[in-house]
Write a protein that binds this DNA or RNA. Structure first.
Lengths: 163, 163
DNA sequence: ATTATTAGTTAGCTAAGTTAACTATCGTGA
DNA sequence: TCACGATAGTTAACTTAGCTAACTAATAAT
């Protein structure tokens, strides 16, 4: 596999680990995700929003006005979880509810200007430590991670659906 | 560096995405981790332990008798978090406390037989969905993920410290 | 016009995380 | 020796995130 490597790369004899079984891969992925998030959560007290709020806000900012149900599906959580998230985001003035004029059951949410700003700022701060870690990787490792990222994203979301 | 990969998958000529900036990479990694864990958490109601308990139990099972402080550091959480985790694991009979005879401030924990069993079973169940997702990846993508995993693990733990 | 379905909310629970303040023990140096 | 500082864990009080179950309100369908 990967039969080639066109000269120019003086790959420093990184020994190839035996290919892990899917179970092992899954297990380690699981564990890495836990530790990664733990680490990031600790960074963000200084300022930003907690991760799930950030994630939801991000969907709202980039996904335009969106119903709570759609948001719940996008975030892969149950409706009450989104309801509470929304309450908190709204209380902070980061989003607004926008009732549907035609179907009054439906509530859409949209980001306020403040919400967009906070998203960008907070997110930046939150990932700052991670960025630092990435900087300390070798170019090669960073490139490897970048290449694997789309795959990871697919796995994270559940694979059958492509982003 | 991979000058083209004649992708054997139906995926049409996967074009090399422009290399993301570290900030973008960090951001997407962050997001992927959130979604991955969310997904896994939803799988495990059927049986297993919640993720942090599983993670701690794993450290205990494989790391032999270990003090609570070491465990807190390994798990990158504050001491009270570990204290509570331990209470729950102990209540379930999965671990035992083992006071240090020489220094009575110190408490070590070790897995019971039941704890080891539960770890393996529960973990297996918990990653089953993930394994399924991995199976649905192409061989190439899975290999890519496997290669990137050590890098991801390093990033997850904070890079400076090597596991 | 009733009934069923859909969208969200409320209530009540569990778990994980935090900081601050506490207890208990150990080590040390006057 | 004994008082004091450092270390290991715990307790208390709080926050956030997730869940299910049960609810209200509005729409759709028969």
């Amino acid at each position: 596999m990967r039969p080639h490597a066109p000269s120019a790369s003086p790959r420093p004899a990184r020994r190839r680990a035996p290919r892990p079984s899917p179970a092992d891969l899954a297990d380690r992925l699981h564990s890495a995700a836990i530790h990664l998030l733990r680490r990031l959560r600790r960074e963000d007290d200084a300022s930003g929003l907690p991760a799930p709020q950030l994630s939801a806000l991000s969907v709202i900012v980039f996904g335009g006005p969106i119903t709570l149900g759609e948001l719940a599906r996008a975030e892969q959580v149950r409706p009450p979880t989104i309801s509470k998230l929304i309450v908190e985001l709204e209380a902070q003035g980061l989003i607004e509810r926008e009732p549907d004029p035609a179907d009054r059951r439906i509530v859409r949410v949209r980001a306020t200007a403040s919400g967009s700003k906070v998203l960008h700022d907070g997110r930046q701060r939150r990932v700052a430590a991670l960025v630092a870690s990435l900087h300390s990787l070798s170019i090669r490792d960073r490139a490897l991670l970048a290449r694997a990222l789309p795959v990871l994203e697919r796995v994270a979301r559940g694979t059958q659906e492509h982003d």
